[in-house]
């Protein structure tokens, strides 16, 4: 499988008055295309920092980040914007839907960025929201909102989908459904999915699991068997 990302001795340090806080220390890894990758770790382990660096939202203090052999850490602001627009999709714990837009319009927000977007109508169907297309976010449940967010992220057919605690605000049943959807999308579109979570049970559905602690990678595991999302045992 082709490598999508390569991180080479990455450090990220934040200055806090007189002390330095090392969010990431000497992180090196390679991520393959088309996989579901789960980044696992407790609060403060550096997983969100790594997501920020991979997506170009933040830049490393030291080290290189390559995306398809292009140095992300050396991109200018406008190049980073294009990088995100052309290649990445995002799903957030708090959904981040636009309250004044309907379901359909929220998905179109993602479509506007792409030169070859997927069909909005098809996506609405795939996420199971046909009867809710003209509803507003305040009229939806948490799970429904997250499905809209997934559709919005996928409509521009990104190479990578970053998911920051996608089930953090959902109950078990709803959370599993969302993960099922992500799995289906991965099967269908071969979108690389990087899921950041503190829920260890999600690791079982991943192709690669990266465990982090105190800013360091403590383990990288490639699962031999991939469980279906519906079979996961919730922690």
């Amino acid at each position: 499988m082709k490598n999508l990302y390569k991180l080479d001795h990455i450090y990220k340090t934040y200055k806090n008055y007189d002390t330095d806080y090392h969010a990431l220390e000497d992180v090196s890894l390679e991520l393959s295309e088309g996989e579901i990758i789960v980044v696992l770790g407790p609060s403060g382990s550096g997983k969100s920092t790594m997501l920020n660096l991979l997506s170009g939202i933040d830049s490393p203090s030291k080290g290189h980040i390559l995306f398809e052999d292009i140095r992300v850490d050396q991109m200018k602001a406008t190049e980073l914007t294009e990088y995100r627009a052309n290649n990445l999709g995002f799903i957030f714990q708090s959904y981040n839907l636009i309250p004044s837009l309907t379901v359909k319009e929220n998905i179109e927000l993602g479509k506007e960025l792409s030169t070859a977007p997927l069909s909005v109508k098809d996506l609405i169907q795939q996420v199971g929201l046909e009867s809710h297309a003209s509803k507003y976010p305040y009229q939806l449940s948490g799970g429904q909102m997250q499905r809209v967010a997934i559709a919005r992220a996928l409509v521009k057919n990104p190479k990578v989908l970053f998911c920051d605690e996608p089930t953090g605000a959902l109950d078990e049943e709803t959370g599993k459904k969302v993960l099922e959807l992500l799995q289906d999308m991965n099967d269908k579109y071969h979108t690389t999915m990087i899921i950041v979570t503190h829920n260890p049970s999600i690791a079982d559905m991943a192709h690669t699991v990266i465990r982090m602690n105190s800013g360091k990678i403590v383990e990288i595991k490639h699962n031999k068997t991939i469980k279906k999302a519906s079979e996961l045992r919730w922690a």
Binding site: P99, S100, Y138
Partner: peptide
């Protein structure tokens, strides 16, 4: 997050316009 009735009515009229304008005026 609630959208008021007036906004909803306007958004229905707005739906005739391209997405860029719909977003702005919503």
């Amino acid at each position: 997050l609630k959208v008021n009735l007036f906004s909803r009515i306007v958004n229905k009229i707005n739906s005739l316009f391209p997405f860029h304008y719909r977003f702005k005026y919503s």
